[in-house]
């Protein structure tokens, strides 16, 4: 890891967005992920070094979150810092100079309007180098299938917070596996268990965002 990578990783992990942000207090008036990324790219750093820094920072905060050592606001602040850095990488993604690990399609299933958990998973997975296609909430199986058609090599994440919407999750997994058996499907949400994931044929269940990111890095990349 280069010095640039380590610095970006620290700023992302600590949620230091830009110089104007007074948080965290010990980094007050210092450059944030925004300025640091721009300066690094201007001085010739490779975009992949920045991406590695984002990935490292998000992986570290995601792991601490899994261990209940930090909580949702910390993760949201890190995600915001990551976004500030990623904004500078956009042209490099478009030119193909830096590559994503893959595409992750995510949505909350039909009948369910909860999205905080889904958004946290999106942020951590994006921070781990994946392009996110967020379909939103109350998403039917057909919408997932259309998105898979547009991104044939994607992995898919389904979220549900209500026990009443678990059947919709089951139907969506069945529809995906019927039409696109090779597509990896990850599921999560408060009422979901590993047993339920096995029963409905999902490839992965994770109780936290980092678990989903780890699975994608090892099994689906």
């Amino acid at each position: 890891m280069s010095e640039t990578t380590d610095r970006i990783a620290l700023l992302v992990k600590r949620g230091k967005i830009n110089k104007a942000s007074p948080f965290p207090p010990d980094l007050k008036e210092q450059d944030g992920a925004d300025e640091q990324t721009k300066a690094a790219l201007d001085s010739g750093a490779k975009p992949s070094e920045i991406l590695d820094g984002c990935m490292k920072g998000m992986q570290e905060i995601g792991t601490l979150f899994s261990q209940n050592k930090v909580f949702v606001p910390d993760l949201l602040m890190s995600a915001k810092a990551m976004s500030a850095a990623m904004a500078h990488l956009k042209p490099h993604f478009q030119s193909g100079e830096v590559k994503r690990k893959g595409t992750f399609i995510i949505g909350t299933v039909t009948g369910d309007l909860h999205d905080i958990g889904k958004n946290l998973v999106s942020m951590v997975v994006e921070g781990c180098g994946w392009e996110i296609v967020d379909l939103g909430v109350d998403v039917g199986a057909d919408t997932f299938l259309e998105a898979i058609e547009q991104h044939p090599d994607c992995a898919v994440g389904l979220s549900a917070l209500l026990t009443t919407t678990m059947p919709a999750m089951s139907q969506t997994v069945a529809a995906i596996k019927e039409k696109s058996p090779q597509t990896r499907v990850l599921i999560g949400g408060a009422p979901i268990t590993r047993e339920f994931a096995d029963k409905i044929g999902a490839d992965c269940y994770s109780p936290d965002p980092q678990g989903a990111a780890n699975y994608l890095s090892t099994a689906a990349a």
Binding site: P22, F23, P24
Partner: peptide
């Protein structure tokens, strides 16, 4: 939110 007494970071 999960924070024990006085342990929440700014802001």
């Amino acid at each position: 939110m999960g924070y024990p007494d006085s342990a929440a970071p700014a802001p």
